[in-house]
Amino acid sequence: MSGNGNAAATAEENSPKMRVIRVGTRKSQLARIQTDSVVATLKASYPGLQFEIIAMSTTGDKILDTALSKIGEKSLFTKELEHALEKNEVDLVVHSLKDLPTVLPPGFTIGAICKRENPHDAVVFHPKFVGKTLETLPEKSVVGTSSLRRAAQLQRKFPHLEFRSIRGNLNTRLRKLDEQQEFSAIILATAGLQRMGWHNRVGQILHPEECMYAVGQGALGVEVRAKDQDILDLVGVLHDPETLLRCIAERAFLRHLEGGCSVPVAVHTAMKDGQLYLTGGVWSLDGSDSIQETMQATIHVPAQHEDGPEDDPQLVGITARNIPRGPQLAAQNLGISLANLLLSKGAKNILDVARQLNDAH
């Protein structure tokens, strides 16, 4: 009898209710805020589980004197976190989706994509230029951005401005803007500013005609071990179906173009009346040469937790077992079709030249 009692006690200790789920994140304040929001949602869904947040620095956090596009290494903000995932030191990792490459290392998958916040870019102005827009900034004003995508589009749109690289986390960039006289304004992701509670610093939100956004911008991705079915089931509740389908289309477009950090590629997606609209573009580094096109596809946005595919093969690095396969494939095909259209119009040449120029500098 006593033996059975011990077995029952052991089973209770090993039951999922007692389990601590370890969540990996970057150390920056924004990353911690984003991770806290994901953990809060998981806690609400699984009140019996405990969650421990483990923060670590990544290569991208450490190399702050070089433009991201020049470092010449993929997975700048993800490699150390993936290493911890691989060694079973954490069970899942919360990322900004735009930091996750469209091809993940073997053994990993994006197990959830959370509801997207505003994906557009924002302009934050130096205190002396508050009330201005990019259009009304004085001639030769210097605007800071760490992104080739932003610089290429904005140089084309605002030729009277000069664009220079600015690195560091959000706090560091804002301090550089406010305390030094080098920059009249800087460009940042609206979602990051909003998550930090800095709505009052948003001086201008850039519309798609001015600057399309990065693939996955404004959404959070939760990376897990691809074979860890328990954790895949656990994080599945975080999937937002519309965000998922938009981001599958965007990531398929980028992957098929073979774009990345070192080339200016941008997108804009919208879901309306059962249609998914995808606009994508590529630019030369100075913005003088560009190709942009829009395509659409009829896609039914499923309700969360309709029964999805059981075999769960990944699409552009994403596993969404609780979302039907048909809409996911339709979104992926839309991204591939748009990429093929741009490639047929000469996108590869623009991107190759951009890559060579970026590598040469």
Rank of each mutant, 00 (worst) to 15 (best):
V20F: 09
V23G: 02
V23N: 01
V23I: 04
R26W: 00
R26T: 00
S28E: 01
Q29N: 15
Q29M: 13
L30S: 00
A31G: 08
T35P: 00
T35V: 09
T35D: 00
D36S: 12
V38K: 01
V39T: 08
V39L: 09
A40V: 12
T41D: 10
L42F: 09
L42E: 03
K43R: 11
S45F: 06
Y46K: 09
P47T: 12
L49T: 14
Q50Y: 13
F51V: 14
I53H: 02
I54D: 06
A55W: 08
A55N: 08
T58P: 06
T59F: 15
K62C: 06
K62E: 04
I63Y: 05
L64Q: 08
D65M: 03
T66V: 14
T66M: 10
S69I: 11
S69D: 09
S69W: 09
G72M: 09
G72K: 03
K74C: 05
S75N: 15
S75E: 05
S75R: 12
L76T: 10
T78W: 04
E80W: 07
H83G: 10
A84C: 07
A84Y: 08
L85C: 11
E86G: 07
N88R: 11
N88I: 11
V90S: 07
V90E: 06
D91S: 08
H95G: 05
S96K: 00
K98N: 07
D99V: 03
D99A: 04
T102S: 13
V103F: 11
V103Y: 00
L104A: 08
G107H: 09
G107Y: 02
F108Q: 15
F108M: 03
F108H: 01
T109P: 00
I110P: 01
I110S: 02
I110R: 01
G111M: 01
A112L: 07
I113N: 01
I113S: 03
C114H: 06
R116K: 03
P119G: 05
D121Y: 03
A122L: 05
V123L: 11
H126Q: 13
K128F: 07
V130H: 13
V130F: 08
G131N: 09
T136A: 07
L137D: 03
L137A: 06
E139I: 14
V142W: 09
V143K: 04
G144L: 06
T145Y: 01
S146C: 04
L148K: 14
R149F: 07
A151E: 04
A151H: 11
A151W: 11
A152I: 11
Q155S: 13
R156D: 07
K157T: 07
R164V: 11
S165E: 06
I166S: 07
N169T: 09
L170W: 01
L170T: 07
T172M: 05
T172S: 09
T172N: 12
R173S: 02
R175Q: 13
K176Q: 13
E179S: 11
Q181R: 14
I186C: 09
I187P: 01
I187K: 01
A189F: 02
T190L: 13
A191G: 06
A191E: 01
R195T: 02
M196E: 04
W198C: 13
W198R: 08
H199I: 13
N200Y: 08
Q204L: 14
L206W: 04
H207L: 11
P208Q: 10
E209Q: 15
E210T: 07
E210V: 12
M212G: 14
M212V: 04
M212Q: 03
Y213E: 14
A214N: 06
A214L: 03
V215A: 09
V215E: 08
G216F: 05
Q217S: 08
A219F: 00
L220V: 11
L220H: 03
L220Y: 09
V222H: 00
V222I: 15
E223C: 14
V224G: 05
R225Y: 08
A226K: 15
A226S: 08
K227R: 07
D228H: 04
D228S: 08
Q229F: 13
D230Q: 15
D230R: 12
I231M: 13
I231R: 04
I231H: 02
L232S: 03
L234T: 06
V235L: 10
G236V: 08
V237P: 14
H239Q: 07
H239C: 09
H239G: 02
D240K: 11
L244G: 02
L244Y: 14
L244F: 02
L245W: 10
L245F: 05
R246Q: 14
C247T: 06
I248C: 01
E250R: 01
E250D: 15
A252C: 00
F253G: 04
L254K: 01
H256E: 15
H256K: 05
E258V: 15
G259R: 06
G260R: 02
C261N: 02
V263F: 09
P264M: 00
V267K: 08
A270F: 14
M271P: 02
L276V: 13
L276I: 06
L278Q: 15
T279F: 09
G280Q: 03
V282Y: 03
V282T: 08
W283E: 01
W283I: 05
S284V: 00
L285M: 12
D286N: 14
D286H: 09
G287E: 01
S290R: 08
Q292P: 07
Q292V: 07
Q292W: 06
T294R: 10
Q296G: 12
A297W: 11
T298I: 05
T298P: 05
H300D: 15
V301T: 02
P302Y: 09
A303M: 04
H305W: 09
E310A: 14
E310L: 10
D311L: 09
V316N: 02
I318K: 15
T319Y: 15
N322V: 11
I323D: 07
Q328L: 08
L329V: 15
L329E: 01
L329D: 09
A331R: 01
Q332Y: 14
Q332L: 06
Q332C: 01
N333T: 01
L334K: 02
G335A: 04
I336G: 03
N340K: 13
L342T: 08
S344W: 02
K345E: 01
K345G: 05
A347P: 15
A347T: 15
A347C: 05
N349P: 10
I350S: 04
I350R: 06
L351V: 05
L351C: 15
D352C: 02
A354P: 14
R355V: 13
N358R: 15
N358Y: 15
A360K: 01
